[in-house]
């Protein structure tokens, strides 16, 4: 518990800033929806005529005239991308920061096994992701109540759940990479999150690139599919789970055998 408390305390400012920014942006979008709703007829027809661009963001299959259609796109951009960046930063720095800040020597000369350190760092990453998502979900619910909307709860719940799983997957893969780094790699983490986001956009553009959805967790957070099907795509989700396990496993294997040089 000492270790987890320490890790969460160390990351509290980052958590606070990312949580506030994402929650504020989401609340802002929801609160301006009633104003935009009146203009949505024109916007929806405009999007429908934009071909590949609309398909890239799933806007060709979402009805902007309905709250969930609007929320699906906005949520995808704000919570999806913002959450992925936050999770990537958390994961990529979890193990590497000790060597970068030269605190690994201090930490690893206490009677705590490497396995325990890796495990508790992973738990603290998951706790921080969960805290962000709980707060964002609460702000989302409050904002929806404030504008008097009554959307279908199931797709809304599934969307938020999908983004939580996406963040866990991104954080886990970055966590595994972190064990191989001697210095913090925020650039690697952010770059990877951006790459995964764009892979999904490319996959939406053409059938030939559809296989990319297996590689990116954004494949199972596609708002249009979740709202239409009211379920998460198990085939993409299963591959994501495999990546998550590989990331965590690599983190444990590498860090438990790693030479700490300074």
């Amino acid at each position: 518990m000492v270790m987890i408390k320490h890790e969460v305390r160390q990351g509290r400012m980052t958590l606070l800033i990312w949580t506030m920014v994402i929650a504020f942006m989401l609340a802002l979008c929801i609160l301006i929806y009633p104003e935009m709703e009146t203009q949505m007829g024109d916007v929806s027809s405009m999007f429908a005529e934009m071909g590949g661009f609309s398909a890239a963001f799933g806007m060709d299959r979402l009805n902007f005239g309905e709250f969930m259609g609007f929320f699906g796109v906005e949520c995808g951009n704000i919570l999806g991308l913002g959450g992925a960046f936050f999770a990537a930063l958390l994961g990529i720095s979890a193990l590497a920061k000790e060597e970068k800040e030269q605190t690994a020597e201090f930490l690893l000369t206490h009677p705590v096994s490497r396995r325990e350190i890796v495990g508790k760092k992973l738990v603290s990453v998951l706790i921080q992701i969960l805290l962000l998502n709980l707060f964002v979900a609460a702000v989302t619910a409050a904002s929806i109540c404030a504008i008097g909307e009554e959307p279908d709860i199931r797709p809304l719940y599934l969307l938020l759940l999908a983004y939580l799983i996406l963040q866990v997957e991104v954080a886990s893969v970055c966590f595994g990479i972190s064990a191989f780094l001697n210095h913090g790699g925020p650039g690697i983490g952010l770059g990877m999150a951006a790459l995964l986001y764009f892979l999904n956009i490319i996959a939406n553009l053409t059938e030939q690139a559809k296989f990319l959805k297996y590689l990116t967790p954004f494949g199972y957070t596609e708002s249009a599919d979740i709202i239409a099907d009211e379920c998460l795509d198990v085939k993409y989700l299963s591959v994501g789970l495999v990546f998550t396990v590989i990331g965590i496993g690599a983190g444990f294997c590498r860090y438990c055998r790693k030479d700490i040089l300074s």
Binding site: Q102, T103, E105
Partner: peptide, 8 residues
């Protein structure tokens, strides 16, 4: 250790 580094 020869170089004392802690959480800043």
């Amino acid at each position: 250790p020869s170089e004392a580094s802690f959480y800043r």
